[in-house]
Nucleic acid binder design. Sequence first.
DNA 1: GCATGCGGGCGTT
DNA 2: AACGCCCGCATGC
Length: 648
Amino acid sequence: MVVLSRVGSPTMSATVAGNQQQQHPHQEWDINDSNVPRVVDYDPWCEWADGHVRRVYGPDCEEARRHASGWAMRNTNNHNVSILKKSCLGVLVCSLGCLLPGGGRVHLRPAICDKARKKQQGKPCPNRQCGGRLQILSCRGHCGYPVTHFWRHTEHAIFFQAKGQHDHPRPEAKSTSEARRSVGAGRRVRGLAVLLAREAALGTKLMSLRGTKRVNSEPLEVPATRMAQPPPLVSDKGYSCSCPPFECICGLQSSLSPYQPTPHGHHNQPSIYPHQVTSSSGETPYWLQDSLPSQEPSIGGMQGYCSTAGVGQVSQVPQEAAYADFSSFTGDLFQPEEIFQLDQPLRPEFPSAGNGTQDVTRSPPSLLDLGSGTIKYEASKSDSDQTTTYWNQLLSEDSSSSHLSLTPAQDERLAFPGFEGSRRQPADCYIAGHKDLTEQSQCINDSAAYQTRHKNGTESSFWAQQQNDERMNFPGFDQQRRAGCFSVDKEDTVNCHTVNDRTTNSVFGPAYAQRARGPKDPGDGTHLGFSSFESYHQMAEQQPNQCVKTSEDVFYYPGNERCHYTCEVLDTRLPQMPVSIGVNGGGAPDQGIAFGDVPELDMAPFVDYTFVGMLCSPADNEPIPPHSIPIPGSGCGAQPTQAYVGHH
DNA sequence: GCATGCGGGCGTT
DNA sequence: AACGCCCGCATGC
Ligand SMILES: [Zn+2]
Ligand SMILES: [Zn+2]
């Protein structure tokens, strides 16, 4: 692959100094190595890095400096001052796994702050029509434990390493959630009238917010070129549409593009930009993605992400599908909580909505590169992909951290596996290494352990209830993932093991278990991964709850083939998962808690959800699952990232 | 009000 | 010892 391209980096490009790494520097090193290679070539920013990935960002990569990620990652103390570790909080989904109008599912971004996260849980599903509550679908992507990200800063670069593949849909991008928040503040309005008024206002607000937000996070970076135009937010989506900020489906596509610019760009590649544009589209909101998912599998998605491809991807598939969805969605989804409540009110106006999506896409974007001066837009290639994926999420609770997790999700996870599988697929950006396999396998084992542990655990009950989980939805995820920058590392495997074992306790456990179970069923075990996703979707869609089992069958897909690695891992996990039911295992405190706490508390606000759109993802995607797998590595590979790839 | 980081502390492996 | 994770505290926006 590519390599290398990494794109890179022309500017940066440096090469690695010494090691072999030169070509594949990333792969070569490990975040824990006493000496990290000097890299010249920086990878483009990848907002949705998934899988065992290693990346080296330039010092000027704002996102990297902020240790940002599309995934909701919370800081965890690893007692190592030189390496910042963060673990995935999963995603907020509807306990009922409702489908948004558009077909997407709710997949909100869990608050990083424990307190805030608790508040989120238990709140009513943004989808008014749905009586469900928001639950956390905890991440168990690393051998049953949450996926972890490690950041290490050196004089000349920022090293990033991810361990594990997310087994859940992507949460909304930060920018989106932020926007919501801001909006939310306002939201409370209750009356329709209010709503209406809001809409208008919101639209603007959102827009503005987004703009700001973007700025904050990434957007800022805007590349010179792009920047110019695109106002960030706006750009995102294209305002044109009336859709609410996050929700906007409609225009997304078009608007999307603007954004993209993200990060990568920076270093790497200018090339990206183009993509970016496209990518932007890619990013398009989940919604879009939803539909996309299918696409994505294919290539497009992946590409987008990672590398250049991104561009195309997004637009391509997703959009269309997405759009369709969206339209439908619009009604449903989007509105803020209130809105939801309202009923469907209005979304129409919210132009902003669209933005949201955009944002999402963009999220990645930013960067600035001051240093280099370049713009970094990474384009978010990855993002785009990612986004697409989302939709489908399900609902399980996981609750991760704060609460206990819920089992329900089981099904979902199943789906996830799929994701993973898909992810691995070349397209995404994975880098998979030989090693990966091993790792995976390890994980599997680990997972098994989990299951067992979990089983023990108490929490299971919840899950059981929920059974429905949704990982199904995930399928979309897969797509996203693909898009995103996956990579697998050899070394990781090791980690997994350790992790798994250790982690077991963690919150996730339960969730996993649940998830696992579903998938497990029969054959799933291994293969399930992808297939599962698909199946999930199907299942979910059809019958949410029980889905899992059925889905299992599905799992078997061919998809497995695709990514052995991933799949394997996944599979293993799944099976295990079931076990988990019981308890958390040990988990940490967090788990334990029932949502109760969280949930309800806050209700009032729901606002967050307002943009439903964000939440959901178009169901559409789900079906797609299959593709997911397939996706060709093409996309991502291209990117900078690394191509290490090669392996496959 | 939250996102982030940091670091103490505890439980497991 | 190495991790994972909880929890509180401090910052900054
Ligand atoms: Zn719902
Ligand atoms: Zn995760």
